[in-house]
Each structure stands twice: as C-alpha cells, then as structure tokens.
C-alpha cells in the first residue's frame, strides 16, 4: 500500500500526464487480465499450492471462444460459455491430479502448462483468429465517468475482486481455504473434506482464468495463440507483492489487487518516463524480491 502511494507520488512528480484519469483507466486495463488471473492464483496459493498453467489455460480458453465464434460453429454466447467451461475443466484436472494421486501442484501445473500450450497451437493451427463477433468484444466497450473512459472489463475485474474478497472472509468456504493452507491435517481432523475443497479451489480458479480469457479477447479483439506466455509468473508476482504467503493460509485477495496495481503503476510510470521495457522488467524483478524481504523482516519482528 505504502509502496503504491510512494510510486504514484514519484511518477506524478516526473510526469503530469501520470495523474490523469485517462492514464489510471489505462493502467487498470493493462493490469485487468493479469489481475484476474491473479485472483485464481491467490486462491491456489492460499491452499499452499501454485499454478504455473494459468496463462496457458487462459490462452486456450481465449482461442476456443474466438475460433468457435468466428467460424460460426456455435452462437457467440455459447462459444463464450464453452470457453469458460474448458478453462474450469483444466482447473478441475489440475485439482484432481493434486489430490487424487497426489502430486505436488508445481509439477502438475508445470506439465499442464506444456500440454495446454501445445493444445492451443494445435487447435488454432498457429493462426491468430480475427473478425470476432460483437459479444466477444463487448467487455472492451467503454462508458464515461466524468471525462474518463472506463471499460466494462475493468469493472468486471473489480467486481470479481469484491466477490472473492467476500467469499474468502465471509463464508465457511473461505475459512476452510485458509485452514487447508495452514495445515491439511488440521483441516481434515476438524471434518473439512480437504480433497473436495482442493478440487473445488482449482476448478473455481480455472473458471476465473476463463473470465480472464474473455477479458483478454475483448481487449485485444483477436484470439491469439501466443497470448499470456509470461502471465503465470506475472500473476504470481502480483500475489506475492500483495503480501500473500507462498506457504499458504495467509493473505488477502485485496492485497493481490494492490500487487497487480503496483506492477501496473511501475510499468506505466517508467514507460511515461521513457525507460526501455527491458529495464521495466528488471525493476519489477527487484521489486518482488524487495517486497518479500520487507514482508519477511516485518514478520520476524512480530514473532
């Protein structure tokens, strides 16, 4: 939070454009896809898991939606629904492999990353899908707040963050996710069906990746098989910057939103300053290590 404010003050001193409503709207648009992916990532990391396959699943979901709709195989809305379903399905497979065999989430999702990446290219024939029907790009539409244009997609992203903040803090399901991340054994002994819960978390995360796919398609206007290749790591960055522990059981989805915004603000601010993009990546990397260091040190002081 402090980092975000400091960064905003710094960039606004450097460039008067930075503080404009239009620029903030742009930042949100730039972070909404990764931000949405990071919601699913937060859920999984809270259970002490990790998901390396989320960017790939999103790319595949996007291609499914775009291709089915553009080819006119099914009506556009059905194509969207099928895309969401496919993403949820991949999430469920991840969850089942993690619980039923069981395998470490890192390995499962690493394998799934490759499988889904390949499927995306096979299914699309390596072609970008263009000429999408209107419903697929509807979320890219804008409305005005004052003289700032806001996309419906940004609104949906914010809404998703609110929904998951509610689910995690106000429902038994949320409490159980934290308990599972603290200790699967404790959760099991208190009567929580940990297997079912884990599969549920991965499936819900998959569905959220599907929504991210729709956001991506609506923002770019095409179905791109190359999309989202570094988004898995970017989403982990957002989660970690947001203060969620990679060991599970600790963290907030609101933190993830802040984490995503911090990355967005830095990239945007540095861009406005004319810093080349490779240095932006460098700074993001340093930022992650710095954030986790501060987090660790402050935690040590408490205990």
């Amino acid at each position: 939070m402090v980092a975000l404010l400091v960064a905003c003050v710094f960039f606004s001193l450097n460039n008067e454009q930075f503080l404009s409503g239009g620029n903030f709207s742009l930042i949100i648009q730039q972070v909404m896809v990764v931000g949405t992916l990071a919601i699913g990532q937060t859920l999984i990391i809270l259970t002490a898991g990790i998901d390396l396959s989320n960017g790939a699943i999103m790319a595949f979901g996007g291609i499914v939606m775009a291709k089915l709709a553009a080819d006119g195989v099914v009506p556009p809305l059905v194509a969207i629904a099928l895309g969401l379903l496919v993403c949820a399905g991949f999430g469920a497979v991840n969850g089942l492999l993690v619980t039923a065999i069981p395998l470490p989430p890192f390995i499962v999702t690493l394998g799934m990353l490759n499988v889904v990446f390949a499927l995306t290219h096979i299914f699309s024939g390596d072609q970008t899908v263009v000429n999408l029907p209107a419903p697929l790009t509807a979320l890219g539409g804008t409305f005005a707040i004052g003289d700032t244009m806001v996309t419906y997609g940004s609104l949906l992203t914010i809404l998703l963050f609110l929904i998951f903040a509610y689910l995690l803090s106000q429902t038994a399901w949320g409490r159980h996710v934290y308990a599972l991340g603290n200790s699967p054994e404790v959760a099991r002994l208190t009567g929580i069906r940990t297997g079912r819960l884990t599969v549920g978390v991965y499936t819900v995360a998959g569905l959220v990746y599907g929504i991210a796919a729709l956001l991506l398609v609506s923002r770019t206007g095409v179905g791109d098989p190359q999309a989202g290749q570094t988004d898995n790591l970017d989403s982990i960055t957002a989660v970690v910057l947001g203060g969620t522990s990679l060991f599970g059981g600790r963290g907030l989805v609101v933190g993830t939103l802040l984490g995503a915004l911090i990355v967005g603000v830095f990239r945007n601010g540095l861009q406005l300053m004319g810093v080349p993009s490779i240095y932006q990546t460098l700074i993001t990397g340093v930022l992650v290590i710095l954030a986790v260091t501060v987090d660790q040190l402050s935690r040590r002081r408490i205990s």
Binding site: R175, H176, Y178, A179, G181, N182, S183, E185, V186, A187, L189, T190, G191, I192, G249, R250
Partner: peptide, 15 residues
C-alpha cells in the same frame, strides 16, 4: 491442532 492464521472464533467453529 489449530489453524494458525485464523482467529479463535473461526477455529472454535471450524467445520
């Protein structure tokens, strides 16, 4: 056997 990051009431009623 308690969930470390949850508060007391959440632990009492866990499950």
């Amino acid at each position: 056997a308690v969930a470390a990051s949850l508060d007391i009431a959440s632990n009492m009623f866990l499950g």
